[in-house]
Amino acid sequence: MTAALRPFLRHEAILFVLLVAALFVLAGQSDRFFTIANLLNQGRLMTEIGLVALAMTFVIVTGGIDLSVGSILGLCAILLGVFWQNLGLPLPLAMGLAVLVGGVAGLVNGLIITRFRVPPLIATLATLALYRGLAEGISQARSVRGYPDWFFVLGQGDLAGVPTQLWILGLLTLVAGVVLGMTAFGRATYAIGANETAARFSGVPVDRVKIAIYTASGLVAGLAAVIFVSRVSTTRSDMGTGVELDVITAVVLGGTSIFGGRGTIIGTAIGLVLIQALKNGLALAGVKGDGTIVVIGLVLILAILASNLFSREDG
């Protein structure tokens, strides 16, 4: 068991050292970096990506991928506005329905992947276009504004001095960590990623586990959509464009193998914080937003390269 855990811990240790080094360097660049206000605000900004990354960790551990999460986010955001403003539903109900639509979108992904045996990359590439298309078609480029004040508590308010959505992210990170690390469901997830055929023969309900994971991925994308709308006070159909790449970067940087079978929630959390710290620290140091994207791309490639070099020494 400990022997099996060693490779995970090694990657996460490298990543953690990288994170600490980055924090030190960035703190030296600007006085404002290590202030409580800044750190909490950064937590606010990374919540949507973080929520989706939790489910994406499960997806990638099974050896799959979900490219449609950004489009699901956009679709749910649009439908939240439509349910509330155009259909006149009460806002809490509209919020619940928006999250539910995310779950249905994820369920559709899961069914296409398991029932028709379409490779996840292709299935979710197709639904990426489909869901974004539905969002664009339904919204006709109209944005929805004028949400009531209480709604903004979710995305702009605080609870006990900490941004509301950060509580949600923290709670779900804990849940995801426990489920993946300590339950039969988590072990089934690893088993599918390590060897799907072997998992099937040893009685793991492979299809049901996969459907549950893709559905969960859609649900958290829907939740992220509601939080996103609450944070920016408006709804637009292009919301969440490109989120899938940020999310996959965080997960892979966190040590989850793109081939499946390997990965932890702790790793994803460190990967997520590292990316957000880099974005924020470089911005405070005067690097433009586009320069930080370059750094993140470099960090992704170098981190995996370093991880590969170290793990090969194990032979």
Binding site: A129, R132, G133, L134, E136, A141
Partner: peptide
Amino acid sequence: YWLRAVQG
């Protein structure tokens, strides 16, 4: 605006 949905 429905183009992408049709393509999908």
